[in-house]
Design a protein around this nucleic acid. Structure first.
Lengths: 273, 273
DNA sequence: CTTGACTCTCCGGTAGGCGGAGGGTGGAGG
DNA sequence: CCTCCACCCTCCGCCTACCGGAGAGTCAAG
């Protein structure tokens, strides 16, 4: 039913390099069926080929070895397939995202840098329903769709007609993980709810510009606005705000999204610097 | 027009971490505009933001820093955009490929392992038009479409009615790069041509199985056939052959591809081992 | 003058291996 | 039986693209 082969033969059967097999043995992911006690030679069984191939495929998909291990060591087929399916879904989302970045980079090649229109605005303090979390940058899309799904639902139920927004702490950008607050402005006498908290956002001056288009292009607008602020304003501490004038919740296409990006500043800049 | 900022501010403008900026400085990819001689503090210019953002985007697409450097240091915009467009095309091909692997992995989850039908056959020596190259595994798809495009064209022009194939040296699988020979069998008196060489393929016994479906699933059939050979046959040296019974050149869908995989063996196996 | 936020350099570690040195094995041919 | 060569072993360092932290210097506000 099954034959014993040397590491070189096994390498040919699985298309994994000898070095890789050594590595997988060392970390205990794929140990040879037995080891010759005198020579130390590894002997693999042909029955191990399918496992090795599964590992190879998962690695081809950039799955980290830790996750690969979770898959191949899954106690039963159901668990294994479930884990796998999750990763595949994940992969497909990332693929779509990469496609977006590629597309936006392409458009960046053909389209010139647009003019930047910056508006200075004082935003008074206001109360809002809010969802606060420490969010990882990789999962911000999921988090947003969940959060603004919830806030949108609440807005509909209570007849709140306000523009939702979010604040992003500095660490979110610099450390790729930080505090994010999704908010929906409400009247000061709005009652508390279970699923969202009630917060007061502080007043501040802001340098504001509108970003038109998909979120994949945000970095350019951020950079342009940030450069502008660095040149003409005094930066104030506190998180950056985004106001989602038109977003996915409005059933618009990504190219029709409208977002205001609000950079906190100390005061209105003096005309001419 | 431009303002000088500290590394921390620059980090916020570009969403690159301070550590990353240090790194880019060290390798000379993105040096600060100037360095304070007394304190050693880096000072960046806001004019550097777009470059930094380009780098960030390219890194998001997994582009190695060496290539990123080639792009940002391109002498003119034409060169740069050309390099970039090439990489983006490349990316999109890889994306498509990844999608295929994901799809095949999904089907692997649902479909059982098929029966393996192995046939033993003696293949006499024959002459063929051939294209021989040292091919990298990453570029095998491109190489094949080019090679078999050429061979197909020649077959059409000279009225050759034979099944094209290829041989793959061991190193192609074990080292991810090796000699590949695309061939088109011809009569022994076939005249030489300019664009392809004329080679004689040696006779050998083979263990042969037919792989039905897209090439992304090859590894399973390879593993199954290889395991079979390891159990029942004596492996012979020499490259593995593939015969493309039905392939992309025949206008078929990937699921209708038919390929014979031929594993060289010493002799016909003795019935019952 | 202190405090706290920033910044500097240097060292070490991470994943997932690759490449090579130095030395032991195994089977085939002579 | 010997020798040869291909194969195998372990160990060490290197690779990319950074991250984390230590220890020390710097800057601006209070």
């Amino acid at each position: 039913m099954t034959a014993s082969v040397t590491i070189g033969e096994f390498s040919r059967l699985t298309h994994l390099s000898v070095k890789t097999l050594h590595h997988y043995h060392e970390i205990g992911l794929l140990a040879p069926a037995r080891i010759d006690p005198s020579s130390g030679y590894r002997r693999y069984e042909t029955a191990q080929v399918p496992v090795a191939q599964l590992i190879r495929r998962l690695r081809d998909l950039q799955m980290p070895l830790a996750q690969v291990r979770a898959v191949v060591e899954a106690p039963d087929v159901q668990t294994r397939d479930q884990t796998l399916r999750l990763h595949l879904d994940q992969m497909e989302r990332e693929l779509a995202q990469t496609r977006d970045v590629v597309a936006s980079l392409r458009s960046m090649l053909t389209l010139p840098v647009g003019e930047l229109t910056v508006e200075y605005r004082f935003m008074p303090a206001f109360r809002a329903y809010a969802v606060t979390d420490r969010v990882d940058r990789d999962s911000i899309d999921d988090w947003c769709s969940e959060t603004f799904g919830l806030l949108g639902e609440i807005a509909g139920r209570y007849g709140i007609n306000a523009t939702a927004g979010a604040t992003y702490g500095d660490e979110f950008f610099t450390d790729d993980v930080g505090e994010v607050v999704g908010f929906l402005p409400v009247a000061p006498d709005q009652p508390a709810l279970e699923r969202v908290s009630l917060v007061d956002l502080p007043a501040s001056y802001f340098a504001i510009t509108r970003h038109d288009g998909p979120y994949a292009d945000f970095d350019r607008t951020y950079g342009a606005l940030g450069s502008h602020v660095a040149e003409y304003c005094e930066v104030a501490p506190g998180p950056i705000r985004e106001l989602y004038l038109t977003g996915p919740g409005d059933g618009a296409a990504a190219s029709d999204f409208r977002t205001e990006i609000c950079w906190p500043i100390q005061r209105l800049p003096t005309p001419k610097g």
